[in-house]
C-alpha cells in the first residue's frame, strides 16, 4: 500500500524533473547571450537531475542511497563548473548582451 503511494509520488517527481529539463533547454534556445543561457540551463537542469533521481529512488526504494550520492555529486559540481566556465568565457572576451544595464567586472579590469 505505502509502496504504491511512494511509487506515484516518485512518478510525479520524475515528471517534474523532465519538465525542468525541457524548460532549461528552451531557455538555452531563447536567451540572448551566453551568461543568460548559462543561468537558464544550469539552474533548471540541476534541479531537474535532483528531482529525477529522487523520483526514481522513490519508485525503487533500495536504490535510494546510491541515487542520493549521484544527486549530491551533481548538485555540488554543477555550479562549480558553471562558474569556472563563466569566468573563463569572460576572460576569453565574450561580451555581455548589449542591453545589459551594469558591468562591475569590467570596471575592475580598468582600474
Amino acid at each position: 500500500m505505502i509502496e504504491d503511494i511512494l511509487h506515484y509520488i516518485g512518478m510525479a517527481f520524475v515528471f517534474v524533473g523532465s519538465l525542468f529539463f525541457l524548460l532549461g533547454t528552451i531557455g538555452l534556445i531563447r536567451m540572448p547571450d551566453l551568461y543568460n543561457r548559462m543561468q537558464a540551463s544550469t539552474k533548471t537542469t540541476t534541479l531537474g537531475v535532483l528531482s529525477f533521481l529522487v523520483g526514481v529512488g522513490l519508485m525503487e526504494l533500495q536504490w535510494m542511497i546510491k541515487l542520493l550520492i549521484i544527486a549530491l555529486f551533481v548538485v555540488l559540481t554543477a555550479p562549480v563548473g558553471a562558474s569556472a566556465l563563466a569566468r573563463a568565457s569572460y576572460n576569453a572576451g565574450i561580451k555581455l548582451w548589449e542591453k545589459s544595464v551594469v558591468d562591475k567586472y569590467k570596471e575592475r579590469e580598468e582600474k
Binding site: 536567451m31 547571450d33 545589459s100 551594469v102 558591468d103
Partner: peptide, 17 residues
C-alpha cells in the same frame, strides 16, 4: 526562471554586480 523563459517578451535586465 520558468516564468522568464516561458513569457513571450523575455523580461530580463541582465548585468554584473
Amino acid at each position: 526562471m520558468a516564468r522568464i523563459v516561458l513569457s513571450p517578451e523575455l523580461p530580463i535586465k541582465p548585468g554584473i554586480v
